[in-house]
Amino acid sequence: MVWKWLGALVVFPLQMIYLVAKAAVGLVLPAKLRDLSRENVLITGGGRGIGRQLAREFAERGVRKIVLWGRTEKCLKETTEEIRQMGTECHYFVCDVGNREEVYQTAKAVREKVGDITILVNNAAVVHGKSLMDSDDDALLKSQHINTLGQFWTTKAFLPRMLELQNGHIVCLNSVLALSAIPGAIDYCTSKASAFAFMESLTLGLLDCPGVSATTVLPFHTSTEMFQGMRVRFPNLFPPLKPETVARRTVEAVQLNQALLLLPWTMNILIILKSILPQAALEEIHRFSGTYTCMNTFKGRT
């Protein structure tokens, strides 16, 4: 038993060195992208914003079928027509992911009409952009139901079949605010932090499930109507991401089977600073960058 433990202690650091070196090589040398031609993709919040761009990106990369979920039929219909014109089979279903029974019923309808979903993209989200004391209780519950619990319901609806097929991928379009919160969006930051923990636990739980994996995407502020009006102090130094960029990098992360993606790469520095700096220093960073007051001009869609 002693020799077994000693052997493990010797092998473990060697494994760490190998995995770090492998990751470093992967950053330099181009990796082979996964073929998506046999995949059926479902995107929640797929009618507009990043969801619409994701549908376009998946279509351009040759997926077999795309399914869009959302709460606004007009947007869903417009995006569906656009994807069909690109030559990809596309369907839409009106579904509120915050409603558990509606998710399960709509998932059943999807399986009957479209077939098995092999890539699930949890993108649907809402933000109310208010402080805790200014927030309506129902609005707070809505954020948690859609942004967090909705991922529980959609994953429970589609993951079992992925495990049976030994072919599946769960994607979460999260936010860097899950790791570094700001004032004025307490509902959003809390829900995204919960969703991040959900995905972290899920990703580890899938390690022994062949053919099924997960990707969590943490983008910086993206220029969609959702966060319209949000302002940082130095917009030229910290420009908002384009939805097209987020969509492209997300699909690439799926094709590379990448578990975690921070956008842009400079967000990695933020996470490191948050881990080593004292709270007072972090507060000064928020004041200097303008994130402390960035939601004061918020006019986004709720």
Rank of each mutant, 00 (worst) to 15 (best):
T216C: 15
I117M: 06
T216R: 00
H169A: 13
S194L: 15
L207D: 11
V126M: 08
M133I: 14
K242N: 06
V251N: 04
G211C: 02
I119W: 04
G150I: 04
Q151V: 01
R231N: 07
I170G: 09
D116S: 15
M226H: 03
S223L: 14
G168C: 04
G211N: 05
T190S: 15
L163W: 00
L140D: 00
V127Q: 14
S180F: 13
T148A: 13
F220S: 12
S191A: 14
F196E: 08
K156N: 10
T215W: 00
S143G: 11
S201E: 03
T216W: 00
G115S: 07
K156I: 10
A125V: 09
S191W: 09
A214M: 06
A124G: 11
G150A: 08
P160R: 13
P240R: 13
P239W: 01
T224K: 11
P240D: 05
A253I: 04
A185Q: 05
P239S: 07
D134T: 01
V246R: 01
P240V: 09
P219A: 06
K156G: 02
K242A: 13
G184S: 04
K156H: 14
S201T: 14
W153E: 02
E200S: 12
F158E: 08
D137E: 11
F152L: 15
L141A: 08
